[in-house]
Design a protein around this nucleic acid. Structure first.
Length: 292
DNA sequence: AAAGCGGGGTT
DNA sequence: AACCCAGCTTT
């Protein structure tokens, strides 16, 4: 059971959310569970502002899992555009097929069934259960982890990996009532996304300012980096992305080796990336060249 | 537990 | 140039 102070803080977040929540299409009452699932997969490591237009077009074309499963994978990857991590588009397409095969075309509500779907991990399963079905669950994304870490434990940034202790502490804060639980989950995420942000938090606008353990200790450790910086320029990841951009924009097969757009890439790296994309099933080789 | 996987906006 | 973002899968 939450302590009374915890309940007051949780209640403050719920009250704040009722006034400050952004009007996002996947939060509308008429949004289907499939729409929620699609939004959650797109939002894995991609900010809301970039997801929203792609989500709208995606849901217009494929309003149900059956609609997407009936399309070639290439159409899903193309519609994914530049959201990044195109394996997510592939997994979402596989997810739609699995929902059709195993669940009669309806998004399952059970945690184990959700977790068994391609691209659905601990966070996304809990998010779908909470936001699509109103089930009481523990939603722990980077925003919620940062809010709880700061307000309850005075830690500036979440640890690299989720521990059992952190999961249990977070579970202890979730209200028993499913409706309040959903409001807390969504509210804590929103607070972390709009106010309790990683770089320059707006504590003067936070409903937890007077109770926040981190504010109480003088907001230490803001400048300290959390994760290790990922190299980008010239990496295989960038080259893979450039190849994918070429394939998305092409009507038919493309000859990658010696392509003018990829002149600056070492042949060995180009071939390595092409092979890895083939291995992922994101690029298909044929005598005429490569295609999605 | 660690590595691999995009891309763009902000500072 | 570094940092960050509604993480997942594989080793």
């Amino acid at each position: 059971m939450p302590r009374s102070d915890d309940s007051a803080m949780v209640g403050a977040v719920i009250e704040w959310f009722s006034q400050e929540a952004r009007d996002l299409p996947w939060r509308h009452a008429d949004c289907s569970p499939w729409g929620v699932l699609v939004s959650e997969v797109m939002l894995q490591q991609t900010p809301v502002v970039r997801v929203e237009p792609v989500w709208r077009e995606w849901m217009r074309r494929w309003p149900t899992p059956g609609d997407l499963a009936a399309e070639p994978q290439a159409e899903a990857v193309r519609a994914w555009g530049r959201l990044g991590y195109p394996r997510r588009a592939q997994r979402l397409w596989l997810c739609a097929a699995a929902i059709v095969d195993r669940h009669d075309g309806e998004v399952p509500q059970d945690t184990e069934a959700l977790r068994a779907l391609p691209g659905i991990g601990e966070y996304t399963a809990a998010a779908v259960r909470t936001f699509a079905f109103g089930e009481r669950d523990v939603v722990l994304d980077t925003n919620v982890r940062r809010v709880i870490g700061r307000a309850w434990r005075a830690e500036p940034h979440p640890a690299a990996h989720l521990t059992r202790a952190e999961r249990e502490a977070a579970a202890g804060l979730v209200p028993e009532d499913p409706l309040e639980a959903a409001a807390w989950n969504a509210g804590a995420m929103e607070l972390g996304a709009l106010v309790c942000v990683a770089r320059a938090p707006l504590c003067e606008r936070c409903p937890l300012e007077r109770d926040c353990a981190w504010v109480g200790t003088g907001r230490p450790g803001l400048g300290v980096s959390t994760g290790r910086t990922q190299a980008w320029h010239g990496t295989d990841r960038q080259v893979r992305g450039r190849i994918m951009a070429l394939l998305r924009s092409a009507d038919g097969p493309v000859t990658i080796a010696g392509h003018a757009e990829l002149e600056d890439v070492e042949p060995a790296q180009l071939m390595r990336c092409l092979r890895s994309l083939e291995g992922d099933g994101l690029a298909v080789a044929s005598p005429a060249g490569h295609s999605l």
